[in-house]
Design a protein around this nucleic acid. Structure first.
Lengths: 343, 343
DNA sequence: CACATGTGCTCAATCGATGAAGCAAGAATT
DNA sequence: AATTCTTGCTTCATCGATTGAGCACATGTG
């Protein structure tokens, strides 16, 4: 048992061959014991215990690369996610990790900064790591990713934003927006005694969610008999600066600012609020706001903000139901979001 | 070119052997071309181009498992992180991913929900995936993780919370807390015209950061000639409910609530704010708050809250400086946090 | 013309784990 | 006693990429 540990080069990790030698047995017996199917392979309890004990003593750690290379399925499950800067994606990722681990899957997550090129690059990287399944969250071009994965025989599920070539789990954006708009409209009417249209700010005009939310927004106005001017729908992107810009330009064009707004994410709300605070507009009376997304501190900003909270636990349950069922049909699951009570 | 794609079993992925056959060359030539050291291996430009083109056409994706298994270094870099529910950890993770990718490293991240058992399990999993290096962020027991990794010859760097057996990059908690406390104390004195101690809420009394912040808190009081009662230091943990509880119990004991508080994280602040809003205490005058951590919406909550923002870009720069330098000495880097201006 | 040098590739071992196939020894059955 | 069965292992090919060693041919040098 000579110890030739060279401190300059990394100490060789213990492998099943080392353990086999120590136990005076074969590598395949060690493998069978350590990966749990030693009963099937008719290894005696005595040997199994001996090997287990040795493995512990030696601090043996399975080499996943070797294991995955040999195995049919990798049990690695990937997720790509746009950003980590808000509670929505944060809880998606937390839930994803927890549920994956529960099932004995190894989650790997990558954030793409909403950059389509990075999305594709990330998807490719995941394929290289032999993921069994990829969840594309809020992807700009989900179908592109699905195609890449399909070519490698990897299942994909779209989350948050739907695609046409893989099952999709999303919020009921239309329903949520309809209800949110109704509430903000009625808050405005209650305060000002007259009906007036809201401003829609944030999101991308081309993405499904934003389009559905705009539809809910318009329908709620229609219900109330209010017409919505085109200029009042500003799908300028998600970044705070873009929302801020919209407000600045609107204020430059007209002194008659809307009394209420539908803001398409907390991140856009950040920009809107910043502008409201710095511009001096709305100094006497805050506008009524509705935010499609939830944040605990936004909830404390005052009773002029309504929020719709996407139901992340239910969404991930739906995602894993699809994974567990192994079904391949193009499900399209819409989860009703939660209308948060003010205060 | 027969297409025998069996839809029930996954279509076999293209390997370098497939490409070699198509190109009429050997697998090792393909490998050399695709991993970029074909010049060293004296492959002709002509063949290189042919192979590259073929790889693209066939949608070839490297099998990382095989590649890593063979190679000396995996170029995988791991990070464990407590939670994704706040801006601080969110930006740590975003920065980590970006900088890792910049260097051609593949980042894998896992969140441990502040659970010590999960931390160890996660570290083990990372070792199995042959990470070259592990960043332990906010770990409860960093030294435990360092030991695990050291046994496998894997470098570790502690981030956010320091350990004694690996380089650590953390905020200057003492300095930040000192300045934050000074500000809140002076805000209180300005408003109330008299010196009075603040309440310290949140964090774990046993962790280095909390201890350092308490030290700064005490020293700022001492500077101002204010004595701090033991009961005013409530390191109750990070969860919102725990902070809320502290407030509730404090209010039950005394009607003379402190006029200002030092709150040890945004997540604890969530609990404190919730209590303030629901309990009816502080209804006339909000207490002056100082929060060790930053959130854009907290910044909008009013001018009674001071914030200290940990300098995540600098922290990650320091982390990657250590990684790039390859140095193994026990650096202890303290990065000054940023004092946010109110409003 | 003999020999060195350079060019452009191929061969085969290897990384560590897995599992089908097989083998030896003992137990049970006819 | 001859045979099947069972138990408890071992052997070896395999997954896909990497890389040191080596080979054949072309070109240059003395």
């Amino acid at each position: 048992m000579e110890m030739t540990v060279n401190r300059t080069s990394p100490p060789k990790r213990t492998t099943i061959y080392d353990l086999a030698e120590l136990a005076g047995t074969s590598a395949s017996a060690v493998s069978a014991v350590l990966n749990g199917n030693w009963k099937k392979r008719r290894i005696s309890v005595k040997l199994a215990e001996k090997i287990t004990k040795l493995a512990e003593e030696q601090g043996y750690a399975l080499n996943m690369q070797a294991s995955v290379l040999r195995r049919e399925r990798s049990k690695i499950i990937g997720m790509i996610v746009p950003k980590y800067d808000n509670r929505y994606f944060g809880s998606i990722v937390e839930q994803f990790e927890a549920r994956a681990r529960e099932r004995g899957l190894f989650p790997i997550i990558t954030c793409t900064m909403r950059d389509p090129a990075l999305e594709v690059e990330a998807a490719r990287a995941m394929l290289s790591y032999q993921v069994d399944c990829l969840i594309a969250t809020g992807a700009t071009d989900p179908d592109r990713i699905v195609d890449l994965c399909a070519a490698a025989g990897v299942r994909t599920i779209n989350l948050d934003l739907p695609g046409s070539r893989a099952p999709s789990v999303i919020s009921d954006n239309y329903g949520g927006a309809l209800e949110l708009t109704r509430r903000v409209l009625s808050n405005c009417e209650r305060e000002y005694g007259e009906k007036a249209p809201l401003l829609f700010v944030g999101g991308r005009g081309t993405d499904h969610n934003t389009m559905e939310r705009v539809r809910g927004f318009r329908d709620a106005h229609a219900e109330a008999g209010i017409t919505v001017d085109e200029a009042l729908v500003q799908t300028c992107g998600y970044a705070p600066e873009k929302a801020e810009n919209v407000m600045r330009q609107l204020a430059a064009r007209t002194s008659d600012l809307p009394r209420g707004m539908f803001v398409n994410s907390t991140i856009s709300l950040e920009g809107v609020m910043r502008w409201i605070r710095h511009s001096g507009h709305y100094a006497e009376r805050m506008p009524h706001l509705g935010c499609f997304d939830w944040d605990p501190f936004v909830a404390m900003l005052g009773d002029h903000i309504e929020m719709v909270r996407q139901d992340v636990p239910k969404m991930l349950e739906a995602v894993f139901d699809i994974i567990d069922s192994g079904s391949t049909d193009l499900a399209f699951v819409e989860i009703p979001p939660i209308i948060e009570k003010i205060g």
